[in-house]
Design a binder for these strands. Structure first.
Length: 150
DNA sequence: GCCAACGTTGGC
DNA sequence: GCCAACGTTGGC
């Protein structure tokens, strides 16, 4: 079982949205490295730190878990979608997504400022300047530390 | 295959 | 709104 951090802009899709929907396909990822993590490495039961980015208080807002392994992201085939990719075909999809299931909303967001200030989390891409990758692996130790901070 | 130009991310 | 950092595109 592995741990992950997945970023989402709460204005677009927040932990509350996931709570309401219970489960959701993680669509719209258009970065190859993030895609590869979803396609090749994320397994059912893996635990996800749900990170709110580009918002007033960036940080980890709650937990989710992988409920379905990767399958083609349908938005790539939809010309009306902002995630449409004209080079993707159903025979040869370019973008994959996993499905995640709501687990928990933290009472308080574990903020980026807290993550930056906490010993042991220096290696997390999210605390480093200029890190834009929206899906990152998290070590068991980092996960334990963060759970202790909520 | 190089690399400049461009677009996007995301914290502040 | 600014801007640094980064990924992608496309000309050559």
């Amino acid at each position: 079982m592995n741990y992950w951090l997945m970023k989402s802009e709460p204005d677009v899709f927040s932990i509350d949205d996931l709570k309401k929907k219970k489960k959701s396909g993680w669509d719209g990822v258009r970065n190859y490295q993030a895609r590869n993590y979803m396609r090749d490495e994320m397994k059912i039961g893996d635990v996800v730190l749900f990170y709110h980015s580009s918002c007033e208080i960036p940080g980890i807002a709650g937990l989710a878990k992988v409920s379905k392994t990767s399958h083609p992201d349908p938005s790539q085939f939809d010309p009306k979608s902002e995630y449409y990719d004209e080079k993707a075909t159903k025979d040869n999809p370019r973008w994959f997504m996993v499905e995640v299931e709501f687990v928990e909303k933290f009472e308080n967001v574990v903020t980026l400022a807290m993550l930056k200030a906490h010993k042991g989390l220096e290696g997390m891409p999210v605390v480093q300047k200029g890190s834009r990758l929206s899906i990152n692996p998290v070590t068991a130790n980092e996960f334990k530390i963060i759970i202790g901070m909520k």
